[in-house]
Design a protein around this nucleic acid. Structure first.
Lengths: 177, 177
DNA sequence: CGAATATTGTTACAGCCATAACAATATCCA
DNA sequence: TGGATATTGTTATGGCTGTAACAATATTCG
């Protein structure tokens, strides 16, 4: 507590001060406490959370859209009309989550559901013309903003970061999603 | 589409196949498309999402808790009784989100709200005995699981990954959260 | 062929998150 | 001192997420 209370620097971010403090406290604890594991997981989750929040509030919300909606539309943009079950699989999401996102996108005229003649249970989700325009517009802005976020790393460092993340992703625990 | 349709390997994860396909498609597009930026942001967000989902479903939900609830209790464990506004600040969350999480934790007897004599608007959130036991238990399990997730990297690589993430976090855009 | 099983999409429910508006209280400063 | 301003926590509303249950349809296989 005392370690954090000081926290004097004017531009200092509260989340970084907390992380440093937590790391130091955990380093003084016996196992299973693991200061390195904490710091890695914390920085990963925190960076992802901040990036998501930033993209959401800065790019998508002002247009009346959402980041999950954009990510789904982006997949449709690359893949063409796709069934919800397939979208859920490549997004590693539940089918009901896909249903919800598609509902709001459809309500706003960005995608449409089409029946599948060969399978009367199934449905295909497709971008409308408006949806495609929305994807193009948001995609350009989002790319620009992502570049800003990682501009503190040079190209080699960015490649190294991507490589490490990709390796962890590919080697994820066998009983993980 | 054709590039993804094949996707033959039995153990292949659909999200990784999609990422590889998207990267390849973007690489063939003119700017502002940026395949490297996409791959970096995608792998970061995807890894964070999968890790969060895994911790949530494997560790916290089975005990009737949630990951956001745990993260808040963990902060209380390190910091002691803390005001919601301060928790919101170090979590980079809205105050209403803190209110919601505290509500369910309080309902389940894991934390309690205490009035602050010096400021009649304010409140302090504190762990109960049950809450502290819950934190200790979940903390040990979560640390173990995090170690599993990153076991494909050696200690030096993990440190390098942490360093890169920390740098991006510290140098985040000035107008970002 | 037909019954058991699997798949598809949806709904109901609960939790988290954000924004906006609010009442209560505290602080500032003219 | 007292009115303007700021802060604190909560509520309302809407979107995303998961789990579980469901009806409709497809597939499997005895």
């Amino acid at each position: 507590m005392a370690g954090l209370a000081g926290a004097g620097e004017p531009g200092a971010k509260a989340d970084l001060l907390y992380a440093a403090y937590a790391r130091q406290r955990l380093a003084a604890m016996p196992p299973p406490a693991d200061a390195e594991a904490f710091e890695l997981a914390y920085s990963l989750l925190q960076l992802a959370y901040l990036l998501v929040t930033d993209l959401e509030t800065r790019i998508h919300r002002p247009r009346g859209w959402t980041l999950p909606g954009f990510r789904l539309m982006f997949k449709l943009w690359l893949l063409g009309p796709t069934q919800p079950a397939r979208l859920a699989e490549i997004s590693v999401m539940s089918r009901s989550a896909v249903t919800n996102v598609v509902n709001t996108l459809e309500r706003d005229g960005l995608v449409e559901r089409r029946p599948v003649p060969e399978d009367r249970r199934a449905v295909t989700v497709a971008l409308t013309a408006g949806g495609e325009a929305a994807v193009r517009e948001a995609f350009a802005e989002q790319t620009r903003r992502e570049q800003e976020w990682f501009s503190s790393l040079d190209a080699g460092e960015r490649a190294g970061l991507t490589a490490l993340l990709t390796r962890v992703l590919a080697a994820r625990p066998h009983d993980a999603p």
